[in-house]
């Protein structure tokens, strides 16, 4: 047995608990940077006023991973899966409130030592409190 991942017990105690909501005002340049990063030239979002459905991946991910790595001593994380539900397009000028939650966590012994399989979900609502998207992702921390 390799050493336990430091901080994993704290994370386990948080499974199923929503993290503090965070607000993300959507700016045109965020959308433009996203479509440039994908290399997406669709005229629907070329002017940066409306975001492609996968833009939800850019909302809150950085803070989530920072918070996660501050809690658990993972050396790295590897994305294992993504599931998106898109209810309405995110537009420039929207203020999106995202709530993240770790919904599943299990540990396993792997070639690289102790590994944690984590499922986390984010729920995004706009300034009118309308649900715009849900995102569930599976990640391996090791």
């Amino acid at each position: 047995m390799s050493e336990a991942l430091a901080g994993i017990e704290k994370l386990k105690s948080m499974v199923g608990v929503g993290w503090e909501p965070r607000e993300y005002p959507i700016e045109r340049e965020m959308v433009r940077r996203f479509i440039r990063a994908v290399g997406d030239t669709n005229p629907k979002w070329r002017d940066g006023m409306i975001a492609p459905p996968t833009f939800v991946l850019a909302i809150g991910f950085e803070q989530f991973v920072d918070d996660l790595l501050a809690m658990v001593s993972f050396k790295s994380v590897l994305m294992a899966g993504t599931e998106l539900e898109c209810y309405q397009p995110i537009k420039t000028g929207d203020v999106i409130t995202a709530v993240f939650e770790v919904s599943g966590l299990r540990e396993r012994e792997g070639e690289m030592g102790r590994m944690a399989f984590l499922t986390f979900e984010s729920t995004c609502k706009n300034q009118k409190h309308e649900l715009v998207a849900r995102c569930r992702q599976m990640v391996i921390g090791y």
Binding site: D40, T54, E83
Partner: peptide, 29 residues
């Protein structure tokens, strides 16, 4: 992985055209 997911999203929205909509997308890496 997420970029691969975004590429799959682009394939779909390119195919769907202006009036089609992507409602759900899932992928395992």
């Amino acid at each position: 992985g997420q970029l691969v997911g975004a590429f799959l999203g682009q394939m779909l929205t390119d195919w769907l055209g202006e009036k089609g909509e992507l409602k759900k997308l899932s992928c395992s890496y």
